[in-house]
């Protein structure tokens, strides 16, 4: 086993995801602590152009195959597993994203390495890697110790700043031979599907009024719409509102929705699960109204109100008209 930190580079349509730079920044810190190298694993059809964006790494390990152009849980696992076997890193850092969920857990079984998921922090304490995870919708934090001397940490997007992970320059690129089993997949990737353009683009709005399950019924949505109108903003929501089909998918903020960065974000009846926080935590001003004083949204808001939204919102709309 080496003391190296291996970051799995996530990319979609040949663009490296933001979260990868967050992991690389953290990985750099951890590599300093362990005295190892920072390695970046690039699984793709052609690694060079992606490697050019990974200047912060000491070395890029590429596995190239046409089969790796798009994510496929089976071929990506085969490729990643070969990298991990060859490099035997101290820690594998992977994003706890849609792709990372498939990849991290299956790597854990494949290579018999322990895994801690939903991580918001990783620190070295002497020889031990300590991982802080956000569990129970963000209401409880847990500190895990990796018992083995090598392991996988699956990290929530938005946990670290991306800037420290961005650096010009192309590190040394080592291409590993693609394992023969790579194209032996039972899942077949067919296509990427782009979202339908909607009536509004919430990523471009200055002011957002976000509704969550606390709004209780579709019939109460006008309350939020009137507030948004008084502010000259738009309405967006958490995932359950979209799953209930009360609002269109293009209004969803979060992990599987859109990332927004408005000047003002007013969260009405949103608990603040990590998957929601990931999409809005960079808003300049966050005001949260939630009856539950232990709701994790208050960790991230600038101002909080533990009152019934149905009492506060009409009064607020009146004041802003």
């Amino acid at each position: 086993m080496s003391q190296d930190i291996l970051v799995v580079v996530e990319h979609l349509d040949n663009v490296i995801s933001d979260v990868t730079f967050e992991l690389l920044g953290k990985g750099r810190e951890l590599a300093t602590a362990t005295g190892g190298k920072l390695l970046a694993a690039v699984l793709t059809s052609s690694a060079q152009s992606l490697a050019e964006k990974l200047g912060v790494a000491d070395q890029v390990i590429g596995v190239e195959d046409p089969q790796l152009q798009h994510f496929n849980p089976e071929s990506y696992l085969t490729a990643l597993s070969s990298v991990v076997e060859k490099k035997a890193p101290r820690l594998v850092l992977i994003a706890n994203t849609s792709m990372g969920m498939d990849l991290g857990a299956s790597l854990s079984v494949e290579r018999n390495l322990p895994l801690v998921a939903y991580a918001a922090d990783v620190e070295m304490e002497g020889d031990a890697a300590i991982v802080t995870s956000h569990l129970y919708g963000g209401k409880i934090y847990s500190e895990s110790v990796l018992d083995a001397d090598s392991g996988i940490v699956s990290i929530l997007a938005g946990s670290f700043p991306a800037e420290p992970g961005k650096k010009d320059g192309t590190p040394e690129l080592e291409i590993l031979a693609a394992p023969p089993a790579l194209s032996d997949t039972r899942l077949r990737f067919k296509s990427l599907i782009q979202p339908e353009a909607g009536d509004v683009d919430i990523t471009q709005e200055d002011i957002l009024v976000a509704v969550g399950r606390g709004i209780q019924s579709e019939d109460n949505l006008p309350l939020a719409e009137e507030l948004a109108k008084a502010l000259g903003g738009a309405v967006c929501s958490s995932r359950p509102i979209v799953d209930n089909k009360w609002l269109e998918k293009n209004r969803q903020v979060g992990k599987s929705g859109l990332k927004v960065k408005p000047r003002v974000y007013i969260a009405l009846g949103i608990s603040g699960a990590p998957e929601h926080i990931e999409g809005m935590k960079d808003a300049e001003l966050i005001v949260a109204i939630n009856t539950d004083e232990t709701a994790p949204i208050f960790e991230h808001a600038h101002y909080g109100v533990t009152e019934d939204l149905f009492d506060i919102v009409p009064a607020l709309t009146e004041k802003l008209k």
Binding site: Y141, E293, T294, F298, A301, G304, A315, K319
Partner: peptide, 27 residues
């Protein structure tokens, strides 16, 4: 392969300044 060393609830409202009062005042 992993064990929990500590579980805890994050310190509440550390981020947010909580606004108190009646609905009118808060609004």
């Amino acid at each position: 392969g992993t064990s929990v060393r500590r579980m805890y609830t994050p310190t509440r409202g550390e981020g947010a300044e909580m606004l108190e009062g009646d609905a009118e005042e808060i609004a």
